[in-house]
Amino acid sequence: MFVTEAFAQDGETTAHQPADAAASAHGETIHADRAHEPGFPPFNPEFYPSQLLWLAITFGVFYWLLKTVIMPRIGGILENRRDRIALDLEAAERMRSDADEAKAAYEQELAEARSRAHSIAHEAKESAREDAEAERKRLDGELDEKLDAAQARIAEVKRSALSEVDGIARDVTDTILREVASIEASQDEIAGAVAEAGR
């Protein structure tokens, strides 16, 4: 609340007046003071030139700060980020090319390993087949030898048995002729008869 000079003097002269008179004097002073108030300073045309001056100064300082301090820093940050992104992209490209080369080398080694494995398996199969064939031939040879030996032995046994059969037949024939038929025959006649019967 503003206290003016007039109100202060009025207050002294009306200190002994009744309350109504003091209140009415006070109200008149407030209305008089309000009538003399200039209003809100920014809207007062009297201050327009100084406001425009300060606006120009503030804008100039802000523009100078923006141009010399803020924008170079922002530009530097953007440049650093651009360089970092470029370096990251180069590194990623190098890593991708390295990965492609490693993949190609791996696929080539895998193909060579498969080829070697196929060759080894084929050689092992051929070797096993050759070994099996050699073992079969060896066993066939052994079996043929054993068969030939067995046939020779059988023939020998057969010859031996036949020679014994002839002797037994001669003896039996001689005994039958002498004891059953009471016929006396020579050994040559009996051997000839047995040989004739065996044919």
Rank of each mutant, 00 (worst) to 15 (best):
V3Y: 09
A6C: 10
G11L: 15
D20P: 10
D20G: 14
A22F: 07
S24I: 15
S24M: 14
H26R: 13
D33M: 14
H36N: 12
P41C: 03
P42A: 06
P45C: 09
Q51I: 15
L53S: 08
T58N: 12
Y63Q: 03
Y63W: 05
W64I: 14
L65T: 07
I77Y: 04
E79G: 04
R81I: 14
I85V: 13
L87G: 07
L87N: 06
E93V: 05
M95H: 06
M95R: 07
K103A: 14
Y106R: 04
E109S: 13
E109T: 12
S115K: 08
S115F: 06
R116Q: 09
H118Y: 05
H118Q: 14
S119A: 14
A121V: 02
K125Y: 01
A128W: 01
R129P: 00
E130I: 10
E130N: 07
D131A: 13
G141H: 08
L143N: 06
D144T: 11
D144N: 10
L147G: 06
A149I: 08
A149V: 09
A152M: 05
A155S: 02
A155H: 01
V157Y: 07
K158M: 09
K158R: 15
S163W: 05
A169P: 01
R170M: 12
R170T: 13
R170Q: 12
V172N: 05
D174R: 04
R178E: 13
Q187T: 12
E189R: 02
A195K: 13
E196C: 02
